[in-house]
Structure formats: structure tokens, C-alpha cells
Design a protein around this nucleic acid. Structure first.
Lengths: 154, 154
DNA sequence: AGCGTTCGGTTCAAATTTGAACCACGGCTG
DNA sequence: CAGCCGTGGTTCAAATTTGAACCGAACGCT
């Protein structure tokens, strides 16, 4: 039970900044998407990931991993999107248990419609606030953080 | 309806890194705090902010702003913490409507008990992953992002 | 083939979060 | 001082999120 290594000033600033920026940005984007496109950020991300997949579909578990969300949470959101007609469920041929979530044409359109406003908001809140070098450094740092946590889970 | 300025590779890397790191770190810390101290990150943050205040108490609205959460969300969590005996409510002398949330001695102890493990987890997931210069840059960048969003709200 | 395990998803109940509605009160104007 | 508008907090219903329990199916081994 020895004294832990507390955070020095810079470390604390980095951590507080991370927490604060995280919350503020999340809140801002959540609102923007909801207002302009009627989608939650989670839902938007689901569409983005599916759209990025070669055939517009991904296995539920795979998708849940990429989104960093719980399996049950994904089940819920996919069901919501399914009701809205933006994604569909397709069962897997090689594994009866497997389920693919796939983007519908309507889902693709919804994403196309929502993207410009979302990108603009992302620029406004994060990207355009920073100088190119800062941005590159941020990408490298956060990428490393993410990779490390991904690796730790495995 | 002209073509929006999409994100180039670095910008996209920064954004994806932000989203991914954000979720992974949040998830990791949430679990750590819950497992080791029985507190949610939100609750922990409430204790931290109160502890940082000169007299260990803050007005509800003020606290909600700092935490970047909704007023109703704060009401809920303060009620939970009150049931647990970690914070108390005190009414404001100069403004009958006002309510102060204040740290109890028990709350102070809970925070002291939880802090070491939390700091260790923060180091492990974020701080110690980066070099000092990276950390300084991160603090500056995220600080700027947060400040900008704070200013935008006002 | 038989069997114990792990996997992929869904279901379920419980905890949290959010925004809108609401209730007083504080403060400013006329 | 009455009339109004903005504040500070809480309440309420609805949406989301999470982990644990569960079910059937796939695997690995004997």
C-alpha cells in the first residue's frame, strides 16, 4: 500500500483535457446528429462501419468489437435501425448461429444524407481547431492508446 | 448543397483515433472503478470536483456544467451518492432555490480509497503510453478543443 | 458417436441518461 | 409594488446501456 505515482501538472492537464474534450465533443455531435439526421451517434457509427465493409455487412460480434459496445447493446441498436429500414439481418450460411447486419439501400442513403453535416461538425469541434502538426500528433498518440487497449483485451 | 470538405487521411486518423480511444478508455476505467471501488466514473468525477472545491461543496448547476452532464442526470447521481452517504445536500442561504452538493467525510474517504487504483488505471491506459512531449502536445490540443467548445456554449 | 466447452446472439431486469414539463423564486421594469 | 421573464432544481416518461442468464450450435478430444 505504498504511495501511488500521482499525476504531475502536465499529466493532469492531459487527463482532464481528455475527459473534458471527450464529453464536450460527444455531447455536441450527439445533438448535431440527432437534430439534423435523427440518428444517435451510435447508430451513425453502425452505418459507417457497415458502409466501410467490403460487402456492406458485418457479423454482429465483429461489429460490436469495432464499435466498442456490448453485444446486447448492439442487438438493441440494430433492431432499432432495422425497424427504421436502414439495416437488415441476414443469417450466415456457414454458421447457423451467425448473423450479419447489412446496410440497406435506404441505410446507404441515410448515411450519405447525414455525412456532410456530421463531417462539418467534426471539423468544427475538433479538426479545424488544431494545426496540421497538432492533428498528426493527436492521431499518432490516440492511435497508440487505442492499439494498446485493443492489444490488452486480446 | 456543394460538396463538403471531407477528411483527408491524417484528419480521419485523428478522428477515428479520438472516437476509438475515447470509447476504449471510458470502458476500461468504468470497469476498473466499478470493480475496485464500486463507483461509476460519473460518481467518481462528482467526488473529484467536490473535493477540488475550496469548501468541498458546489452548486448543482455549477457542478453539472463542470461534469458536462444534464441537470437531471446530476440530480439522479447526487441522490444515489446521498443514499450511499458520500455526499449531502445543503440549501443555499442567499438563494432559497439553490442547492449545494457537499462531500461528506465518508465521501472524502471513499475518494481517497479509490484514487490510487484509478490513477494507476489512467496511467496504464493513457499517460504512461505516451512520451512526455506527446503528453504535453495532447494536453495542449485537447485543452484547446475543450476551451473552444466551452466558449461556444456561452 | 459421445461429451464437455466455448461461441454467437438474444432476452431480461436493473441502472442510467436525457429532454421536456413543471414549480418556485429572484430580479428587473415600468 | 405588480407583472414578467430567466434561473435553479426536481420530476417524469421514454430511450439506451449493461451484464448476467440462457439457448442452440460448433468444436475439440476421446
Amino acid at each position: 500500500m505504498d504511495e501511488p505515482r500521482w499525476l504531475d501538472e502536465t499529466e493532469m492537464a492531459a487527463w482532464r483535457g481528455f475527459v473534458e474534450a471527450t464529453n464536450l465533443v460527444a455531447r455536441r455531435l450527439e445533438r448535431q446528429l440527432k437534430d439534423d439526421a435523427g440518428l444517435s451517434h451510435t447508430q451513425y457509427e453502425i452505418l459507417v462501419h457497415l458502409s466501410a465493409a467490403p460487402d456492406g455487412s458485418l457479423r454482429m460480434t465483429d461489429l460490436a468489437d469495432r464499435l466498442v459496445t456490448s453485444k446486447s447493446g448492439l442487438t438493441y441498436q440494430v433492431t432499432q435501425l432495422e425497424k427504421a429500414g436502414l439495416v437488415g439481418r441476414r443469417s450466415c450460411a456457414s454458421d447457423v448461429r451467425g448473423v450479419f447486419a447489412e446496410l440497406t439501400e435506404q441505410g446507404r442513403q441515410a448515411l450519405r444524407a447525414a455525412a456532410p453535416g456530421h463531417v462539418a461538425a467534426v471539423r468544427e469541434t475538433l479538426i479545424d481547431v488544431l494545426a496540421p502538426e497538432q492533428l498528426a500528433a493527436l492521431a499518432a498518440s490516440l492511435g497508440a492508446v487505442a492499439d494498446r487497449l485493443r492489444a490488452a483485451d486480446a
